[in-house]
Design a binder for these strands. Structure first.
Lengths: 142, 142
DNA sequence: ATGCAAAAGCAATCTTTTTGCGTTTATTTG
DNA sequence: CAAATAAACGCAAAAAGATTGCTTTTGCAT
């Protein structure tokens, strides 16, 4: 995998250092159609790294609004890159997710907007997550 | 806490045995407005029990369609009772959830139906989860 | 009352995630 | 370009969540 200039820019514009693993991680996210677990990332990395390093990078990315988190239905945390620039800490998922029960992948459906519902008075709404579960295209064919 | 006849019936109608802890657990769920984590349940139980027992009871309840699961934003699994009878294993959350960022409680909004979206062809949709995050009524007041 | 399968309890293990701390290294600055 | 410094890394340890195997207990049907 070749790390792009874009990965560099993301790091630079967030005041983060340009290290090999962080460049690689960002590239992995940019190349992925779906949200990744820590295990996914560990597998995708060329050279082996301490899981702690991965965790800390993910946290840093998340705090800087580069990634957002969503737990999959099993409660495992997954991460995906924020295509539209997310305000730090107040990330609002604007699009729906689809999680395949076969391959366990989480797809970001960038073009599927989350519909609103009527919320009782007294609640302060900060963000919404809309997640569909089922079988994805690819797994459907097998 | 007093276990009701209803808890008994739930167990009986699912071919499960009437044990003290399972009765208590069901009662806790029926008395709760929000989804509970394993820790919540452990705290709410009168007498102390092995966590394994709690896990196994939860799994059994979930397999029988008595409870449904949703992970909270931290990826911790939470459980809530199915008010409408859920077909086993194929539970479809019909209602939205609200998770308070302050008290971390997951509220089941029984009367808020999940709106549909247009899903690209080729996907098989099994269930949808709709989760709002923000501050709940109670926390709003403090 | 007896027998059997379900459920409970205990120990052990596994996975995921976090924390502390010493070392390395990218980047800034003189 | 060398020195300084704070960020990031790597290792060890441990906390937290969840599962598994096995033995004992117990609810319930016969």
């Amino acid at each position: 995998m070749e790390t792009t200039v874009k990965a560099e820019n993301i790091l630079k514009s967030n005041g983060l250092r340009k290290t090999q693993i962080r460049l690689e991680m960002l590239q992995i996210f940019m190349d992925s159609k779906h949200a990744l677990s820590v295990n996914d990332i560990e597998k995708d990395l060329k050279s082996s790294h301490d899981r702690v390093t991965i965790y800390r990078a993910l946290n840093s990315f998340e705090e800087n609004g580069i990634l957002h988190q969503t737990p999959d239905p099993n409660g495992n945390m997954r991460y995906a890159i924020c295509s539209d620039s997310c305000p730090e800490h107040v990330h609002q998922d604007k699009h729906a997710h689809f999680i395949c029960e076969e391959c366990n992948q989480t797809y970001c459906l960038e073009d599927v907007k989350i519909p609103d519902v009527q919320l009782e008075n007294g609640y302060q709404l900060n963000s919404i997550s809309y997640t569909m579960n089922g079988i994805c295209k690819e797994c459907q064919l097998n």
